[in-house]
Design a protein around this nucleic acid. Sequence first.
DNA 1: TTGACATTACGACTATTCTCGTAATATCGT
DNA 2: ACGATATTACGAGAATAGTCGTAATGTCAA
Lengths: 120, 120
Amino acid sequence: MKTPDVIEALGALAHEHRLAVYRLLVQRGPQGLPAGAIGEGIGLVPSSLTFHLQALQRAGLILQRREGRQLIYSADFDAMNGLVGYLTENCCAGSDQACATACKPEATPTKIRKQPRRVA
Amino acid sequence: MKTPDVIEALGALAHEHRLAVYRLLVQRGPQGLPAGAIGEGIGLVPSSLTFHLQALQRAGLILQRREGRQLIYSADFDAMNGLVGYLTENCCAGSDQACATACKPEATPTKIRKQPRRVA
DNA sequence: TTGACATTACGACTATTCTCGTAATATCGT
DNA sequence: ACGATATTACGAGAATAGTCGTAATGTCAA
């Protein structure tokens, strides 16, 4: 994932409504949700919702498909993994020592790894 | 990490210069870097740099300490781990089945966990 | 205490983001 | 083809973000 893409993805998620939409879709899984249902879930007027859906789509975070007269949106999990990957890889990149002590649990590059989940 | 904090952190990172600053500091490790050096590294006029440093600081992503007449900034690795944690935990939350197939390696929620690292 | 350096505060300007209402488009059932 | 439903396109408005230059603050060395 390239830096400009990361910036766009971060910017897309850095908004109350869009983050809410995205979380909703992530929760929903690949099955997705039609625009109307998303709007209801979040409590957003249609035209505003479209605006945010487009932002998420431009950022490559969500996918769109048609089903009858509805447009179904779903999270793009690859993109999300790419984003997280970018952040974490940059964490310990170049400064192993600093990170071994600073980067908490996940740290230890190739070894034991105690409690892998629940970071915060 | 709470949602509003996540939004602020994402927003802070969602900018070319701030992301550059942050990556520079992450690379540098806990030792940190004085404002001037950061400005040179990124190529940013002092007043603009301050603007962005404050944004990162407000978001809780970086720390500031004084050393002589210089102010040293360093990445807050806890915050970064919190952010990544928030993103990943939300990934598979609530929809185990969907995620087991979609969320790639990390998947399997409470069980074996094969290759914990390298998400993308 | 004076002068030099490092950094931040402040103000002005431009550009972008977000919001909504209304109009347009696409699909379905009849 | 027609009316109903689902969604997007467009335009206008207010709010916010980002940029820079210049002034103010804090720290050091003498």
